[in-house]
């Protein structure tokens, strides 16, 4: 059984549905509070997948995900590096993505490095919940190995605008095929607001590290697991499964 640690902290709030998504594809997910990792009560090494779910950890006070990111960066760096080095997977959704970029787990796993990219306030200046189409690019990402070309997930955030530190960083993301998800339209055309819901540079919605084993994205695949999650299922009929399922299934299949 593939074991998943869904990491909780004060203010995590998509933990239950993230566990539900992993359990649904045959993994066994545990909801673990960060204090139990810090105290050594629970060992990261006992798991194959680390998922940092959405939410407002520590209220997103200071900036989104910052406090949890610093806890990981300064107190769990070694465990995280070892976890990654041993070929295991890390997934950060929404607040989890914000944590990954601020902790130094994306765009590459180097916790000692200064931040290369960030997720900052939406151009609209407010929190928005809406469904978006995502282009799934060719990438080393293991979470999208078998996946539709365009997927449909909701975003729900105030700080989701992806910004690289400079053009070189952006170029590197392109060169390494790290731009896993880009906002698009239903037909795959270049998006403007609200299809790009936050003003992200290059319409970037999610990136992976060069190994493809660390993925972060702002949209919520765990909110499109059951067919009734789709906002238009009463028009289109019920699908066999939601678009989000493949993300979790690919992660579990990676270990088979």
């Amino acid at each position: 059984m593939i074991k998943v640690i869904v990491l909780r902290a004060a203010g995590s709030n998509c933990d239950v549905e993230t566990k539900y998504a992993f359990d649904k594809v045959g993994a066994h997910a545990d909801l673990i509070h960060i204090n139990r990792l810090l105290s050594g009560d629970v060992k990261l090494a006992d798991y194959q997948i680390l998922a940092i779910p959405g939410g407002f950890t520590y209220g997103d006070d200071v900036s989104a995900g910052k406090i949890l990111a610093n806890q990981i960066k300064f107190q769990l760096a070694e465990a995280l590096q070892a976890f990654h080095n041993s070929g295991k997977l890390v997934l950060g959704i929404c607040n989890g993505f914000q944590v990954l970029v601020k902790a130094g787990l994306l765009p590459q796993v180097d916790l000692a490095r200064d931040q290369d990219v960030t997720l900052t306030f939406n151009d609209s200046g407010k929190f928005e919940d809406r469904w978006v189409f995502l282009k799934v690019n060719e990438s080393p990402c293991v979470f999208t190995k078998e996946c539709k070309k365009i997927v449909y997930f909701p975003v729900a955030h105030a700080e989701g605008k992806f910004v690289p530190r400079n053009l070189q960083v952006l170029q590197q993301l392109k060169d390494n095929n790290q731009m896993v998800f880009q906002y698009t339209t239903e037909n795959g055309h270049a998006p403007v607001y609200p299809h790009n819901p936050n003003g992200s540079v290059e319409n970037i919605a999610g990136i992976c590290d060069p190994s493809g084993r660390v993925l972060g994205l702002m949209p919520h695949p765990e909110r499109h697991i059951d067919p009734t999650n789709h906002p238009q299922w009463t028009r289109l009929g019920l699908a066999d499964e939601g678009d989000g399922v493949s993300i979790f299934r690919n992660a579990v299949h990676f270990f088979k």
Binding site: N13, C14, E17, E128, D129, P154, A156, N229
Partner: peptide, 11 residues
Amino acid sequence: RQYDHEVQAGS
């Protein structure tokens, strides 16, 4: 839209 109306994924 300013409210998260789908968290907990049961919508």
